[in-house]
Design a protein around this nucleic acid. Sequence first.
DNA 1: CGTCCTATTGATGGGGTTCAAGGCGTGTGG
DNA 2: CCACACGCCTTGAACCCCATCAATAGGACG
Lengths: 252, 252
Amino acid sequence: MKLTVANSPFASRVSRNYQVDDSDLEVFEHMDFRQAEFKAGDAILERGAELKQVVLLVSGWAIRCRYTPEGLRQIVHILLPGDIVTPSVFVAKRTDHGISALSDVVARIVEPREMQRVFNEAKTLAAAFWWVAEQEHGMLREQIVRLGRRSALQRIPHLFLELHRRLFLVGQATAESFILPLTQMDIADTLGLSNVHVNRTLKKLVSGGYIAYEGPVIHIHDSSRLAELCDFDLAHLHLDSTVAIARSKGVA
Amino acid sequence: MKLTVANSPFASRVSRNYQVDDSDLEVFEHMDFRQAEFKAGDAILERGAELKQVVLLVSGWAIRCRYTPEGLRQIVHILLPGDIVTPSVFVAKRTDHGISALSDVVARIVEPREMQRVFNEAKTLAAAFWWVAEQEHGMLREQIVRLGRRSALQRIPHLFLELHRRLFLVGQATAESFILPLTQMDIADTLGLSNVHVNRTLKKLVSGGYIAYEGPVIHIHDSSRLAELCDFDLAHLHLDSTVAIARSKGVA
DNA sequence: CGTCCTATTGATGGGGTTCAAGGCGTGTGG
DNA sequence: CCACACGCCTTGAACCCCATCAATAGGACG
């Protein structure tokens, strides 16, 4: 049933890196859902909005963000195809941050009740869901280290390598390049920098031969050289997952 | 059965802010566990260590941290009594960060199998567990905003107010003061600053009449004035939780 | 064909780091 | 019981990474 795998980036990502039964993927693909589309810039969920449904990102990029009273924006996390927009829907009543579309976005909206039915029928899928959620937490921790203890010259490539790897996992990047729909302003707001300094640092990365870009396409010739520059852990996001599966079969 | 509530900070925290059945708390208090003690500075879990058990923090402070190759330390998150040291134990095989004791620590160690039995018997407790885990994620997002878009003069009181509130929830702070076992170096490594600048900023906060301290005791006379200075959201961590309970009764 | 957003570059300045040195309290071993 | 070491706090001085302000240029779009 490899056709079903390609249908959704969530399934694609999960099935590549996590042992999910084919029959469970089948259940996933036939799940009852509603499709929603958003234009670039649209709010998907306002800060403080009620969490009523499971939202899965099918295509396009989205961001979790917060604003300070001075009007500064902090992009807390970037969501890519295959990510879960509302992992906390089973636990929290409202979002503590805004979620908006960075590019045009297609999402699947699932009722919690239906999601629970799927989890009951497809145990390995339930485990995969929580594993994907946990990956985000790992990335949040990584983001904290990036902001707290790395220079601008490290932050930018570190983010790029993370995005590249994530995109690659859902088949949206080649080995050496990917499309980055972020403006320099977006990068700045993600990494706690000013847009001006992002611009200058990008030039430095280009002139240093670390990266190249034409329009929104980023090229990384030598990812291990770049990884060394910014201390990117190549094992990052490769949370070894096999244990969780066995455990999940008995989780409440 | 209010006696049982006081037995553990986890139960105390949860029962104050989350509707957990008394009978479920009873189950929790009679759960099978092993007690472990750590001295200040001890590693509780090394980075990359296997996650085999549920670890609950009973008393003392602990930190999640990461190191850069240059030897810089980033404290990703601070764990207080009542927190879950290993929320990802059901999902990940290894930790992506080190966990160590900041002060002397007492922890409860529970086998996943036993934890699952408790979750099955005590549904509201299971929901509370995930709710506590979700609170940590909210704090990670807050930490990202703090590091990315706030000045040193805001970061420090923002952290203090968060710690104060959390401690208050487990009965370890008065309305206006709490004990902070962090060195200025620890604060620096939490907030992405140098210890020198933390020192100077603390003085500024004191001379501005925002805080006072004698030894490890921090006083906050006027928390709303301080909250305004650093844009601390007083509703923060007050994730409205009532919905999750109803849902949890059917979660896979 | 103006308008708006994004990228780019220069100039200036400040928040924060780094280096360095001194004081203070605590523990420890000779 | 004192001497010394060590960790933490403190303060000064120099410097630098990065922010801010400002101005120009280049699309995309109605």
